[in-house]
Structure formats: structure tokens, C-alpha cells
Write a protein that binds this DNA or RNA. Sequence first.
DNA 1: ATTAAACCAGAAAAATCATTTCATCCTGTA
DNA 2: TACAGGATGAAATGATTTTTCTGGTTTAAT
Lengths: 309, 309
Amino acid sequence: MPHAGLCTTLNPYAIWAIRGKTLDNINLLRKVQLHLDELRKSERKVANYILLDPASMLQMRISDLAQASDVSEPTVIRFCRALGFDGFQSFKLQLAQYLGSSGNYVQFSVSDSDSVADVNRKVFDATIGSLLNVRDEMDPVALEKAIAALSKARRVEFYGFGASGSVAIDAQHKFFRLQVSAAAYTDPHIQHMSAISLKEKDVVVAISQSGRTKALIQSVNLAREAGATVIGLVPRGTPLAALCDLPIHINVEEVEHVFTPVSSRIAHLVVIDVLAMGVARSSSEHLQDHLKRLNRSLRTLRANSKKPV
Amino acid sequence: MPHAGLCTTLNPYAIWAIRGKTLDNINLLRKVQLHLDELRKSERKVANYILLDPASMLQMRISDLAQASDVSEPTVIRFCRALGFDGFQSFKLQLAQYLGSSGNYVQFSVSDSDSVADVNRKVFDATIGSLLNVRDEMDPVALEKAIAALSKARRVEFYGFGASGSVAIDAQHKFFRLQVSAAAYTDPHIQHMSAISLKEKDVVVAISQSGRTKALIQSVNLAREAGATVIGLVPRGTPLAALCDLPIHINVEEVEHVFTPVSSRIAHLVVIDVLAMGVARSSSEHLQDHLKRLNRSLRTLRANSKKPV
DNA sequence: ATTAAACCAGAAAAATCATTTCATCCTGTA
DNA sequence: TACAGGATGAAATGATTTTTCTGGTTTAAT
């Protein structure tokens, strides 16, 4: 097998996989909340206790949970069954997995006493937490429309400023490789100039963390006037979101008074990856040949000797 | 509270947090592997079975696992105890949590029958999987040294090509905000020219997914000759890794014949975040004032009206 | 080579815990 | 108020884990 470096293997679809997990139980706690009013009164006591402190029940036996919720043991079982689980153990296991997957990445702040290893861990976990949120909030229909538009596009331009500027540049790279005629502009003047020269079959992807950058709004307006389709990677409910033909809403934060500028760029990048993967999927074998050749040519830019660390 | 957009709150440290989880069990499977030779012969059978297919045991009763591993039930319990758990259930629960946190993000490939929602999920999970790996493989000592070097640096330059080019640009942004004199060069000529003009107190951060890009190797050589300190975000065991003063090893892939160019850039970005956070921490309150002013000034570039979606 | 000691593994008993059954108790309605 | 209906819990049942104890196997010393 070829070296892993940039991209030297054949199948662009081969990545990583989810072990079988029904989509139902991915958001277990949300599911509990949703079914709350379908539950009987005493079962609801159990639900409320679990929603209040999900982690604690992992250590509990059925009798403990019954006592803590002030109901009888059979009720706990009925609660589990009402949610579609086999029984208490089955529910507990699912909850453990759920808490393992998303429960860990809750809020925190780095303190001065943290070691570098702690900071590392926390920054990574913060990022992962954001990604999990964005993943679950993503609208597949919007994605689908965006992928369709990108696949048909004659030319794709990525616009962004600041941190979103580097996302735009990265996106250009990605789409370039897929043989899409792509450009990235991070300068407002050039954006404007390019925007007015766009045609109907062109697509603009506007990337913004704030959703309110004036210059970007202007570029998008110009692009739309020129007849181009505008896809937006923007937070919901912002001026830019309202302006785009195909807004893809990306809300990184849920807790208001928290500073996470770290993660939103990364969420944007991953969404770009999703779009690129979607476009790659919908294109022909021809493209895969192209990718093979591309990788071969990149290899000539590299040194070959392997030296020890 | 101010709007969340780019970065409008006061405390740059406030991000996200880990719910209490002993470090021991974060890498449960690795732990099993490490203790493998301390186990008795028949207990090892159990361990091997679990390492082979951890997910399957979640559905198993103790007797099933005993049968599957070809040992008796007490042996299974002794195995759990040997690893420091209370018993079988306790172990199973921890494993469920572990698999929930990282076990899901194992290998797969996107198939043509996948919906866009599936692709979305898989791309996100692939990314998260890589991040989890990189997080756990990261060397805190190397990070610490790099942070120290960056904090003392008179000037920091980021070098990268291709996808790593946009990482370099992003890194420049990030450090720029921390009042570090930073530059990013993605053109080999300019890199070379800049590299030879560096001084002893300067730091270069070389970013590469392959670790073997010729032009980058050359830039690094020039920078070192000029007396600058070179930090490398590179895979272990590559020519570049050998060349850097302070290599930070980032190995995104573990499975050889798999194509994951998607995730390595992102891992690099997160490592940049970690470094930036480290530098921010080690600098004064003065910096925090600066950040406040910076955010105020950025706000003037934005539209203020809130429009509905 | 032989024997004792320590150790290891499994069968069966015991304990624990989840589940089912069934009787009781509410709640709402005629 | 009486009755139907479902909702709840006590106690019995059943399943699964855990402990105990015995037979076997390795190890080391004579």
C-alpha cells in the first residue's frame, strides 16, 4: 500500500466508519425529553431524575434508581420499555454509550493551574464537542441542495474574511482537486470585482462566522445580482443567512456567554469536507482516474528517504 | 452578553469541559493491552476476545463471553477484577462509555447507497475519530517546549504548502491576534527569502502532512542555518521531523491503506489552537486588554440588523 | 525424578439483581 | 356513589452474576 501522506490511495470514499448504532439513540437524552408527555406520571418521575443527573444512574441498580425517583422497581422497567428499550440493563448501556459520546464534551474553562497536557485535552475536547453539535444540527436537505448546485456549477468561488479566509482557501484546494474550477477570494475588492463577473451557472460559497460581515454581504448581493447561486456557511438568523439562496446553518455555540472562536472555523472546514465528499460521490469514475494521476504528480515534490525520529 | 460571532467576550480561556472521568479509563482498550502480560493464561483469552471485537461484548452476558472466549464464567470475573474493576457489569459499563467516546469512530467507507445525511455523519465522525487519536498521541513535553519557544519569539513564521498552506494562514491569524508578530508564507521562493533573513530569536513553524515536501525541507534548512528555531507539525519518522528543533508529531492515520486527507489539516489546526492557547495563557493581562479592544474594532465591520431566517 | 507448594481454572452453590405476576389503589365517569 | 379502566407497587419468580470450594497443573526445591 502506498504511503499515506497527502492522498495516495485509490478510493476517495474510503474513510472511517460508525459501528452499528441506531440513529434513534444517538440523542438519548433528547429522546427522553421528547417522550416525556407520553409517559405515565410515575414513569415521568424516573425520566426527570435521569434528565437531571444522567451520569449518576450508571452506578445505580434498578432498586437504587427506583428509590431515588420515589417509585417502585417495576415502574423503572416500564419506563425503559416505554422508550423502546429491552429493559433496564439495555437502557443503562445505551445511556453509558451516549454519555461517553457526547456527555464528556461539556463546558469548562482552562485555569492557570492546568498543565499543558490539560490544555491540550481541553482544546481538543472543545473542538470535538462543537463538531458533535454541528453534526447533529446539520440540515441534510440544505446539504443536498448545496451539493447539487456545486456539482452542476461551471465555476465555484469561495468568499471569506479573517479566519474564514483560510477556510475559503482550503475549500478552493479541496474543490480544485475534484476538477471543479474553483477560486478563493479574501480581499473585498477582488471579491466584488469577481462577483459582478459571475454568470448564472456559477456558485458562490460565502463563509462567515458572524454572519454579519458588511463586505461579505455586499459581495453576496453583487453575486446574486449577477445571477449566481449563493451557498452560505453562516449562523442561523443572521443577515447573511437571509441573503443566501442556499444557507447552511452552522451554529457553533449554544451556551451564550462562552468564547469558542477556536472551533467554528473547524466546523466550517468539516462542512466543506462534507460538501466535497458529496460532489465527489456524484461525479464519474473519470474523476477517480484524475485523482490517481494527481497523487502521482504530487509525489514528485517529495523527498523519499525515511529517517528515524 | 455580547454576540458570539468572532470573539466578543472577555475571557479567552472559557471554552468547554470534561465531565469527571478518571484518566485511567479513557483508553480502556489500551489499558487492556498494556496489562495483557500480567494476566493469567485463561484471562488473556478473554482479553484477546475483547480486543478483537469490543463492541460485541456489550450485548453479551457473562456466560456468553465465557463461552466465546472458551473459559469459565469465574475467569471472566477474575479478568475484570485483574484490571481493577468491581466486576463484570462495571467493566461492561466502562467499556460502553469508552466505545461511546472513541470506539464509534472506526474505519469505514462511504458507499453509493448512503444518503447525504449518512455522508455528513460519516465525515464528521471520521474527523472526530482522527482528532481523538491525535489528542491521545500528542506529546505534552514537545508542546510545552514549543509554547515556550513561541512565547519568547521575536517573530513567528508559518510555512506550508497545499492544504497545509491554509493551515499556515490560519495560524498566522491566530497568533496575530495574540500580538505576536506573525507571518505565513505558502510560496517556496518567498519562504526561502524570508527564511534566510531570520534571526536567532525567531521561530518558524513548518506544517506538513507528508513530512517530505522538498521545498519545505529546504526552507527549514535555511531557517535553521539563519539561527531560527524550527517547530514542526509533521508525521513521526519523516525527513522533516528529523530536521526540526522541536518536532510535534502528528500521525493522523493508523490504518495504512485508507484515504483520509480530510482530517489531517484539521488536526493541525487544532494543534495550532493548543499552541495559541498555551501562548495566550503564558502572556500578561495586557494581552487580554488588547483582545477586548480588538473585538470592539472588529464589530464595526459588521452589519447590526438581525433578520429572520 | 519426585514431591510439596503455590497457583490456576472450573463446577456448583449462593447471592444478587432484574423481571413478571397479580392484587390494590387511584381517577375519572355515569 | 359505584364502577370501569388504567396505573402502581408488593411479593414471587426467574435470570445472571458472584462466591466458594475442589480438582488439576505448573513450578521449584530436594
